[in-house]
């Protein structure tokens, strides 16, 4: 029998689970097909399968699913409703399963967990394995392995991020979701421009989330989106080590528009609010970044 092939879209949830899924399926002797980095074709396909009102990230997600639809047996779309009552995820994430189900004729591997109802991530992983006809004990072992490996990856990333804080260059904290920052079309052009301008950028999400999550309460106790909390907590975590903040969000992001606006009123930092839509020309973004870097350079020279 051929190996089962599972497709993972390189978009929204991928950036939170990173290689955890790949490690898991590897252990179960299942092949994983990861969609390529976002390119023009993926964006255009995504635009065709979505309506105008959806956010750019969702459009990109659908483009990735479209790429995978004929190349694998199943597409993996987990749904994590929350990580506890005060740690919700964006409603758009919850819609992914239904969106894909209703748009494409594909088999979807799905698990739904609600951590506030005492469900665990492990349960989700095992549920998937079992639905593919694999014994619970084997699934459990594979999960333990995947978890350990991905923890290791994460620690390495966190360490690298902390090291960047020691840099002698001007340092800018990038406050944006990983699926935007690391996307070839949304965040990477911004990061590349910053590198050209000799700026050290630091990812707000690459810190220990248990620390940043708690720190977020110093800026606001009312935010209930887990990922937003971690991002703004990072501002408090590094506030005495950075020279400026760039907020990067995709158009039109609901949580970001609320959270960023709220935070901007409370911080005393030079900041730039970048909203990225599907625009081919980078000229506008470059002008804004250059001007912003001029401002923080001047501010630093003055102090």
């Amino acid at each position: 029998m051929d190996k089962i092939k599972i497709g993972i879209p390189r978009s929204i949830p991928y950036y939170y689970f990173d290689k955890k899924w790949t490690y898991y399926f590897e252990k179960l002797n299942i092949e994983v097909i990861l969609s390529p980095k976002t390119n023009k074709k993926i964006i255009n396909d995504g635009l065709n399968y979505t309506n105008d009102e959806m956010c750019l990230s969702l459009k990109i997600y659908m483009g990735h699913v479209n790429y995978l639809k004929d190349k694998c047996d199943y597409i993996l779309i987990p749904r994590i409703e929350n990580y506890g009552v005060a740690d919700q995820t964006c409603t758009n994430f919850l819609s992914l399963y239904d969106l894909v189900k209703n748009t494409f004729k594909v088999k979807v591997l799905n698990y739904n967990i609600v951590l506030s109802k005492r469900e665990t991530e492990e349960k989700g992983f095992i549920k998937i394995g079992k639905s593919l006809g694999i014994k619970t004990s084997v699934c459990k072992r594979a999960y333990v392995y995947a978890k350990a490996m991905s923890e290791k990856d994460k620690k390495k990333k966190h360490l690298m991020n902390l090291k960047k804080l020691l840099s002698s260059k001007l340092k800018i904290l990038m406050v944006g979701h990983p699926y935007n920052i690391e996307d070839e079309y949304v965040g990477l052009p911004v990061l590349k421009t910053l590198e050209k301008l000799n700026i050290e950028w630091i990812n707000a999400y690459d810190f220990d989330s248990s620390i940043t999550n708690k720190l977020s309460s110093k800026l606001s106790k009312d935010i209930y989106w887990k990922y937003s909390k971690e991002l703004i907590g990072a501002i408090k975590f590094v506030e005495d080590k950075i020279d400026g903040i760039i907020f990067v969000s995709s158009f039109p992001c609901g949580p970001d528009s609320l959270v960023n606006d709220l935070v901007i009123r409370k911080i005393n930092f030079p900041y730039l609010n970048l909203v990225i839509d599907d625009l081919d020309s980078l000229a506008g973004v470059e002008t804004r970044l250059e001007s912003f870097v001029d401002i923080i350079e001047n501010a630093k020279a003055k102090s």
Partner: peptide
């Protein structure tokens, strides 16, 4: 004090 401290530009 003669230094640009903040700016904003029309977005999209």
């Amino acid at each position: 004090n003669g230094v640009v401290v903040d700016y904003s530009m029309n977005t999209l």
